[in-house]
């Protein structure tokens, strides 16, 4: 959510409005039109193409990102709303190692078919494991219910998340 550093004026539809935010730990400053979506901002302005466009109305989860640490739909927020926010994408979370166990488990379980949903699945799985380190298969399914895999590879994905939970528990000191 924005931090209100924008001036109080109303911005015109063609105005380029300066926003400053943190994306994957880096400070970013860009000019955006009000209608520019976060997903287009990430892909077109920053070249971060791991966040995918699919349904464009919040149903499929392919555009899942973290905003201020919380799971969010990238397609349901405008970049102009994120002045001052902290956004993390699949690229940043891969680089930091935050998703390492989940990614390894997806690889080992062949839980990636075409791969289009994978970024969103990984973020949703990680969000689940952070709040519930030992989920049941039903809880895994419920947590991933907002992310569609059109290859329908759900069994392998649930297996992978269950494996990742065990691996995280094993590594925990």
């Amino acid at each position: 959510m924005g931090r209100g550093r924008l001036p109080r004026a109303t911005f015109g539809m063609s105005d380029a409005v300066a926003i400053r935010l943190t994306v994957n730990g880096a400070r970013v400053e860009r000019l955006v039109a009000p209608r520019l979506n976060l997903v287009d901002f990430l892909r077109d302005e920053l070249g971060l193409t791991g966040t995918h466009w699919s349904c464009e109305h919040g149903a499929c989860g392919a555009c899942t990102v973290l905003i201020d640490g919380a799971l969010a739909r990238g397609c349901l927020v405008f970049a102009i709303q994120l002045d001052g926010a902290n956004v993390e994408t699949i690229e940043g979370l891969t680089e930091s190692g935050a998703l390492a166990e989940v990614q390894a488990a997806f690889h080992a379980r062949n839980a990636v078919q075409c791969g289009f949903c994978s970024a969103g699945m990984l973020l949703a799985a990680d969000a689940l494991l952070r709040r519930n380190p030992e989920p049941s298969r039903e809880q895994i399914r419920a947590a991933l219910s907002g992310n569609y895999c059109r290859c329908t590879g759900y069994h392998a994905i649930v297996d992978a998340v269950a494996d990742a939970a065990r691996e995280r528990a094993r590594r925990k000191p």
């Binding site: 209100g4 109080r8 911005f11 015109g12 539809m13 009000p34 209608r35 287009d40 405008f78």
Partner: peptide, 21 residues
């Protein structure tokens, strides 16, 4: 699709928001 163009305001008080409305 993408959202149609719109103007954008981010008021800081309820009164300002009501005035904009």
């Amino acid at each position: 699709m993408k959202a149609p163009p719109f103007r954008y305001a981010r008021p800081q008080t309820l009164d300002a928001a009501l005035r904009l409305l």
